[in-house]
Design a protein around this nucleic acid. Sequence first.
RNA 1: GCGGAGUUGGUCUAGCCUGGUCAGGAUGUCAGCCCCCCAAGCUGAAGGUCGCGGGUUCAAAUCCCGCACUCCGCACCA
Length: 572
Amino acid sequence: MESKRESKADKLAELARRRGFFWQALEIYGGVGGFVSFGELGVKLKDKTIRLWRDYFIHRHNFTEVDTPLISPYVVFEASGHVGSFKDPMAECSKCHKKFRADHLLMEYNRQISEGMSIEDTEREINKGDVKCPDCGNTKWSVRHFLTMFETTIGPYSESEGFMRPETAQGIFTEFKRIYEISRGKMPLGVAQIGKAFRNEISPRQGVIRLREFSMMEIELFFDPLNPKCPLLNQVENEELRILPEDLVEKGIEEPLIISVKDALSKGIIKQEWLAYFMVLSKKFAIKLGIPEDKQRFHAKLPSERAHYSAQTYDHEVLLDKFGWVEVAGHAYRTDYDLSSHMKKSSVDLSVSVQLEEPIKVKHLKMNINSKKIKEIFPDKFNDLMKRLKEMSPEDAKREIDNSGAIVVEGLKLPKEAIEFVDVEEEVKVRRFIPHVVEPSFGIERLVYATLEHAYSEKEDRAILRIPPYLAPVQAAVFPLVSKDKLQEKSVAVWEDLRRRGIDAIYDDSGSIGRRYARADEIGVPFAITIDYQTLDDDTVTIRDRDTWKQKRLTIKDLPDHLLGLLRPSDP
RNA sequence: GCGGAGUUGGUCUAGCCUGGUCAGGAUGUCAGCCCCCCAAGCUGAAGGUCGCGGGUUCAAAUCCCGCACUCCGCACCA
């Protein structure tokens, strides 16, 4: 086979372009890197992938789904930490024009760098003469920020700086308060979002694998850090995962550990039950897309390569022909990082409360303020004093009085008789906390690509996309065996009947029957229905299987239900 | 961003070195014939500002320059 010279990825890219799955966008302007357009088949495949994901990740858990803005103001990404960590100082060598991370260079020379160091300071620091260009040895640098978020402005006079979101997650965090309320205080609470995200990649090669504008499916699973158990874990604890934990990654080992969820949790390889649960679901979902288990693995991110918000992250990777192991999903334990950050920035309380099973008694100190006395001593200042006293913590007040026999408020000295301290025991029925978050996050285009690549096969020198029937963009094709003798008329009637039953069916009578089968195979149509001369006699048709090429004969009446049965995904 | 290679109908490609015939072929598409169960055959048709812009020349797909994009390395990838 001489055609083997061309890689599967190349042939698939050509097929995708020619038949209209997807192609590089803006071709009439020479194309712009990192942007693709989807044609009809791509749109359908994407749509069905999303539908399957919704079933796997949202509906079966009764999670909720939102759709939040793609653009948010500066402050959101300042709070989330993206402005800091997406804005890297790039140092450019003045001689060979190679670019490096300025902070990484300085670190190599053991120079002090501070978190929010300005461009000017960084430039001064790196130009002190000893920092050499790793490539040409030059010591003169110019430093600029490279921002991987797309910047924009908001408002008719560009009043406010904004960003295109680099992940959908922040929208869930900024809207958390209301979502939580709408969900009637449910905890754990799963919130999903499906939509576009934007990253201004430096060099977005690898076609659809690395895009500047792409689609994500994310869930933020909020839970009580004191009750971190995943109630669904028993369903998956005996499942095995192929994991590359941190210690193996550090040693550069590529062969994953095959370990049960139960063991991975007890050995601390996976730190959070929900994280483990979603990893299993993620694996099953990918299998459902047609990606075999041994072409999948979970790759731990080392602390240095983890996102700024993450306490533990596993990349769900699949093995692709040309690109090697590619991340299709990220499973991150984000703790309460995001909610806490937004809480601080916005000054809005984003904590939630739970009813305690049993009220607990909590002892604390209470101030009984003798208001009569205070009014007597400072009648003019009474209101101010009362206000200030109520803001004080009883412990601090008592300490001051115990030490000095009096307390100074608003510059006025109140005698100890003004306040009485009592120990009270109170029943507490609620506990407040900031929810922790586990986040599974999927890249749709990468999943679609991985699906196509694993579906791609060749038989007798023709391409066949063995896309699982429930994902196939076109589910059935109806052909008249020959284009005459009323066979066309009959075929059109069958086609219309299938469409009415909600089946994605096409009709084709152009060229020979073999050509039509080939055309259908190439876009992954799982079933082809052929109307022949026998149909005119007994109302039966043949149904031909894409993968086996075997044919079966059944009546037109039974056809729609039979097809619908074949098109339903079997359970997990 | 850097270095190297490339970009020709929908797709794949010849031609470029050594400027000059209507830019050739294959495949696909469409129409007709054929009536056939796995891209069969025959006839015909449509489809190309040779990536974009500029230059050299009487003449540029072909030579030169700039840009965009693609691929391979390097760097980057929260």
